[in-house]
Design a binder for these strands. Structure first.
Lengths: 231, 231
DNA sequence: CTTTTACTTTAGACGCATCTAATCCGTGGT
DNA sequence: ACCACGGATTAGATGCGTCTAAAGTAAAAG
């Protein structure tokens, strides 16, 4: 049996691996989880003993296949819950993350099944993050770029936004920058401030670099026309 | 902040107080929670330090008003969850208890509100147990008797059944003995085996004393008819 | 009134997750 | 090559919740 805490570490390592690629450093995990580095070292040792991570001392850590499977299971719970809360309990985009974090370790397989069924086996959560399938094969995230890496004139579709900061989500929701929305980059100012035109003829919206960095985008569906519609 | 475990103890003490009246013994709590008596002594000491229980050494323990409020909050979560799972996620009567036990400590006040709203502010859970109101005033449970204390010829309405044993619930569900059902006691055999006629002209069903002891009944709605019940 | 018995509490230990303080790599700068 | 500095690990302590074994108490039985 794995503790909630271990699951949190595995989820954190998975997320950091997605963002930066392996290996993941002790201090990055510590910062992500709000723990001190010695605490992380100690926990990572236990995860290694259980075969959930591979580790090279003083270097970093990487999930084993088994560890990744656990992380995907937790992430599936998390994202199904986010979707369910949004869809059936009238939660807004920005409220679901903390609730899902609290519940994800405590739902049964049965609950997971029923929630997935009630939602019609969804493939993405409200933030655009892919929901791992029931068989826990790693979702494919290729073909996405980070908004802050794009260039003026790019026509894009918002694929995902980070679910970690409710204030940011509130802001993006106001701005109309939600998964599936078409945007055009109209300006990139100093310090990475990105200005985009939202929707087909919509308003312009400037996003600080710290926000643009957390937004993932993909090319529009029909690459040969001017502006296209989202998925 | 109270730990999950402390909440479990308070809930257990509350339940035992309802069943047996205060004070509640160390060993009863231990048995109810599946812990050893020394563990309970130790935990009860901590609850006392926090002002959640009153205790007299070697005698027993009783909830303070504050402790009772916490217990009612947890119970409200538990029973709302049971109702929600049954109503909206297609759970059966016998499956909901464990799931609710796992989730009751981890839902937010917001979640509680939305679930209650989705259900239309229900007053009882699927087992007939009263759901404490949002202001956490103690529910009134007077007017109920235990089926095993009733007599042959009594006409009764099933008010509540215990939610703790899924197998028993399965059995009662089969037997048609569910909250709201009218029954008539037709026989009481040695060792407390109670036989009842279920529904108006329905079949007869024998219930072992261990089961009859967990069923709470009330008199039928019109008290001026044939037979009425004991205290 | 004494003894037995059942139950409760104290004593002492353990594993988990965490921290602070101290020590230990490894690498980039000179 | 050397060394300094940033990041990682070890050392050691703490609080929680749990256990077993030993000691204590209260109430029933004699």
């Amino acid at each position: 049996m794995l503790s909630d805490v271990m699951e949190d570490y595995l989820k954190a390592i998975y997320t950091l691996q997605m963002e930066q690629g392996p290996p993941v450093s002790t201090s990055d995990i510590a910062e992500y989880l709000g723990k001190t580095p010695p605490t992380v070292t100690s926990m990572v040792g236990k995860l290694e003993d259980r075969g959930l991570v591979d580790r090279e001392k003083y270097k970093g850590v990487e999930l084993t296949t088994e560890g990744e499977t656990v992380a995907l299971e937790v992430l599936r719970h998390h994202r199904l819950l986010e979707a369910y809360l949004t869809e059936h309990l009238d939660y807004s985009w920005s409220e679901v993350h903390d609730e899902a974090d609290a519940l994800e370790h405590h739902i049964s397989e049965e609950f997971e099944k029923r929630v997935a069924a009630a939602l019609g086996e969804p493939e993405v959560d409200p933030h655009g993050d892919p929901i791992p399938s029931a068989d826990l094969t790693p979702p494919d995230s290729s073909g996405l770029s980070v908004l802050s890496d794009c260039e003026v004139g790019d026509h894009l579709v918002v694929a995902r936004v980070s679910d970690r900061d409710p204030a940011e989500l509130e802001y993006l929701s106001e701005a109309g920058v939600t998964p599936g929305t078409t945007i055009e980059v109209t300006d990139i100012a100093p310090f990475g401030m990105v200005t985009v035109r939202v929707g087909d003829g919509g308003r312009e919206q400037s996003l600080p670099e710290s926000v643009a960095r957390t937004i993932r985008v993909r090319p529009p569906d029909e690459p040969d026309s001017e502006e296209v519609s989202p998925a």
